[in-house]
Simulated assay, not measured.
Amino acid sequence: MTALKLPEPIAAYFSADQQNPDALVRCFTAQATVKDEGQTHTGLDAIQAWKAAASTQYAYTTEPFALDQDNGHHIVSSRVAGNFPGSPVNLRYRFRLERGLIASLEITA
């Protein structure tokens, strides 16, 4: 399989995803928002807390397999597998980038 060529901040997000909430938060702008599981997390502290909670609750891996663009957004499809109900699942990550960082992220099934 050919590796995806993801924009730098998105590649950094997936590299840091589950293992390092501190590195992950550096991928975002100061006022970034993340929407996941019906909740919105705004700002670096909230995003770091969201990711730390998810990382302690579940062990999982993410494998991005497709990249599309829509109206200024980068949409990454990724297979997520782990010890959570319904695993594995394909999720869509809708990123909006700003000045080389992630300004918004929405994760949906």
Rank of each mutant, 00 (worst) to 15 (best):
V89L: 14
T42H: 10
C27W: 09
P88D: 02
Y93K: 07
L44D: 01
T42D: 03
L105N: 08
P9Q: 02
G38V: 10
H74T: 00
Q31Y: 07
L44Q: 12
A52H: 08
G100H: 08
F28D: 04
A53F: 05
S77Y: 06
A103H: 12
E37C: 07
L24A: 05
S78G: 12
Y60C: 02
T61Y: 02
T61L: 03
L4Y: 09
E37V: 11
T42W: 01
I47S: 03
L6C: 06
F28K: 07
I47W: 05
T33Y: 01
D70V: 14
F14A: 02
T40G: 05
Y60H: 10
V89I: 15
E8C: 00
P7V: 05
A109P: 12
W50K: 12
G86R: 07
Y58W: 15
E37S: 15
V25C: 07
Q57K: 15
M1T: 13
A32H: 12
T29R: 07
C27R: 08
A49D: 06
Y13G: 06
A3T: 13
F28W: 03
I10H: 03
N90P: 00
Y93E: 09
A3M: 11
T62Q: 11
R96N: 07
D68T: 15
C27T: 14
E98R: 14
T108K: 11
P64G: 11
E63H: 10
R96E: 13
F84D: 04
S78C: 14
F84I: 06
I47D: 01
L105F: 07
A12S: 15
D45L: 12
I102L: 10
V34T: 08
T29W: 05
P85N: 04
T62W: 03
T29L: 01
H74V: 00
H41A: 01
V76R: 09
D17V: 00
F65S: 05
A16C: 10
I75H: 05
Q39M: 13
E63T: 14
G43L: 07
Q19F: 13
V25P: 05
E63C: 04
H41V: 00
A30E: 15
Q48H: 15
A53S: 09
L97S: 03
D17M: 12
K51R: 13
D70R: 14
E8Q: 14
D36S: 13
D68M: 15
A109V: 10
A32Y: 10
A109W: 03
L105T: 06
K51S: 07
T61F: 01
P9H: 04
E63R: 13
L4F: 11
A23F: 01
K35A: 14
